[in-house]
């Protein structure tokens, strides 16, 4: 389908500019860039260049450009945009338990790019314990009291405990 001149470029430019300042572009914010009756998402699905990627959330669709951010980083931003701290913490933990594999220090979430408050983190972890959807997420503590989360789908308790102790204590004693 042919769109009016400059329309596609305007959408791409907006997404790339947002990504360059490390924010996702929600689909809702693209609506003002297209004429009435035109769906920005349809335009992008049809005409976007290779660097433009889309993530489908429960609240919106989000776009980003791989020229400025990687897909894993965009995924962090996407989870933040979804404003569901419980899911954010659980899915980040699952990713790390599966990928590296390693347990996730709870302190991860008070750091960039999450920047959650202690109360938000504590609340999310507490709620998780009562939701069967997150039954695989457990906590484990290193001997210096650092708390870690892990997904039992990918790590056993003994493995998570060993890795947590190494990360918090052992590695610092054996630099």
């Amino acid at each position: 389908m042919a769109y009016e001149p400059g329309l596609v470029d305007a959408l791409l430019e907006r997404i790339r500019a947002d990504s360059a300042r490390t924010v996702l572009t929600p689909a809702v914010e693209l609506a003002s860039l297209v004429p009435g009756g035109t769906d920005a998402v349809e335009v992008l699905e049809e005409c976007a260049e290779d660097d433009i990627k889309m993530m489908r959330g429960t609240r919106d669709l989000y776009f980003f450009s791989e020229l400025s951010m990687t897909e894993p980083y965009a995924r962090h931003l996407y989870r933040l945009a979804e404003k569901d701290p419980v899911r954010l913490i659980a899915e980040t933990t699952r990713d790390e338990s599966k990928t590296y594999p390693r347990p996730t220090p709870v302190s991860t979430f008070d750091d960039s790019p999450f920047s959650m408050t202690k109360a938000e983190i504590d609340a999310a972890i507490s709620k998780m314990a009562f939701d069967p959807e997150y039954a695989d997420i457990h906590t484990v503590k290193a001997s210096n009291e650092d708390v870690y989360l892990y997904s039992a789908t990918y790590l056993t308790e003994a493995h998570a405990a060993g890795l947590a102790e190494w990360a918090s204590v052992g590695e610092k004693e054996n630099p």
Partner: peptide, 21 residues
């Protein structure tokens, strides 16, 4: 050590501590 836009991976235990801020 922390997720950064250019990075696919991060690890709090990394010695690549440089980061904004």
């Amino acid at each position: 050590t922390v997720p950064l836009p250019w990075a696919e991976y991060s690890d709090k235990g990394s010695r690549w501590t440089g980061r904004p801020g």
